[in-house]
Amino acid sequence: MEHFSKEFTIQRNDIGNAGTVSSLTKRELKKRGLSRDFVKTVTIGVYEAEINVVIHSYGGTALLEITDDYVQITFTDTGPGIESIENAMTAGFSTASSYAIENGFGAGMGLPNIKAVSNEMDLSSSKSGTILRIRFNICSDCYES
């Protein structure tokens, strides 16, 4: 079984480079012949999560793994953590800074969007950091026909 993995560094407030992880994920999935719909679904989830690390955290990493069965991406940041995961998971709830809002983010839709598009999502958080793992299952219908 082929196992692709790549780690990225995400800098705090580096909005200009936000999208790097999702762009590369998109390219890797297209290379494997996965369908446009599947690629779009994964891209949405990865982009939202990437933006979260950029606008909410002190910075962190993203680990992209692709096997024959799934695409998994794990975002690990160094804080300050999510005060209430329940609130963060509520559509429309946002703690985004005015800087993030001026750049078109902070609608409070990030985590709800990720949950809606992924097959698995684990989120744990403390003051020293947040870990978000999202997984998209690859099935035979996920390929371009």
Binding site: I15, G16, A18, G19, S22, S23, K26, R36, K40, T43, I44, Y47, N103, G104, F105
Partner: peptide, 20 residues
């Protein structure tokens, strides 16, 4: 896909989303 996006947001992230 292939939508025309109309937005007053004039920053680089619009291009990221448009490309994705």
């Amino acid at each position: 896909e292939n939508n025309i996006l109309i937005t007053v947001l004039n920053n680089i992230n619009v291009l990221g989303v448009a490309s994705l």
